[in-house]
Design a protein around this nucleic acid. Structure first.
Lengths: 193, 193
DNA sequence: GTCTATAGCTGGATAGAC
DNA sequence: GTCTATCCAGCTATAGAC
């Protein structure tokens, strides 16, 4: 993890990596200049050499993660079973935990709020195009089940279960997953592996 | 809002009220001894007279809100249309915003985490008893639609929409509400007012 | 019960040497 | 590019006067 006296962008990357790790482990409030510097193995003053302020660091960290996730999303949606792929992705803890921290952070860092809103719109647009096409192919009535609602429901349900899991709660999770997968299976058949 | 030299518990209540307001406005990280004292109109040292630590203050604030919400929930579920009542309650911003802040807070205040988990179990138990009975009366097949799943889905979807709303996003919200209310209406008829 | 005062710490951010 | 040193602000928590 530590990167000492490396190439140009090594420290910058190390600082972002450290910030992300701390954010996941102890929440956004634990992300301080001194702590990310220690974790990255560099001096804390370097934070201000690479990023003007902590706000800028958070924004850049968010963008880096969002860019990666958007790529993963687009790749998943190219699957011949885009509903299965989307459902599996939305159940993946790794992205979701960070998203939730940034959501909380946005509450009192207003520069972050705009960044998240814009990013969310981009994600939703990509999801909508891919899943809207798929649902149309499957003959789903768009008046009865609009693609936006299907996306919103799957996203909300999976995120809620992820939050509950973080608190050690899982009542009804298995049943709920079974119901949703029953519906997906009716449209896309068994998940191909 | 300010309470000066009042009766025994007035300052204590004022401090809790101030903490809650700040938490909602600027996030949990903005809840500091100095700020809640200023907002409550008392001296910051009083925080430690009434609460041993900030952790204790947060826990007491959470319990106070949870107790009130549980009462509201129980009252709502006594409605002749418990599904409608539950759905409307879960769409209510007022409680949800605080819950989300506490959820984020739990990430790095572990005493809070246990408190939330225990509270969630209590809520779910109450919801399950009332809505499980209702769904049975409506003739809903518990194998196809277990009450736990119905609760979890409604909760997750409404919370997701509330979060999105906070970011100025509402794509697909109206459609999704319409779908859910269509299903509730099929079981409980039109919402009586 | 409420206050002043302060200890002791940690934070963001900057200046300037190397 | 990386460091040391430092300023200043804000924090939790405590001691003790009233």
């Amino acid at each position: 993890m530590a990167a000492r006296r490396g190439s140009a962008e090594e420290s910058r990357t190390a600082l972002l990596d450290a910030a992300q790790q701390i954010m996941l482990e102890d929440g956004y409030a634990a992300v301080t200049t001194r702590r990310i510097a220690t974790e990255a193995g560099v001096n804390s003053a370097l934070v201000y050499y690479y990023f003007d302020t902590m706000d800028d660091l958070f924004i850049e960290l968010f963008r880096r993660g969002a860019d990666r996730s958007l790529e993963r999303l687009q790749e998943a949606l190219r699957s011949p079973q885009p509903l299965w792929a989307f459902w599996e992705l939305s159940q993946d803890q790794s992205r979701s935990a960070l998203t939730m921290e940034f959501t909380a952070l946005a509450n009192h860092r207003h520069s972050i709020r705009a960044e998240i809103a814009e990013s969310s719109r981009r994600f939703r647009k990509v999801e909508l195009e891919a899943l809207g096409d798929a649902l149309e192919r499957y003959g789903v009535d768009p008046h009865e089940w609009p693609a936006t609602s299907v996306i919103l429901m799957l996203s909300g349900i999976s995120r809620f279960m992820l939050i509950e899991k973080a608190f050690g709660l899982d009542l009804g999770h298995a049943d709920t997953v079974a119901i949703i997968e029953r519906h997906i299976r009716a449209l896309e058949g068994d998940r191909a592996r």
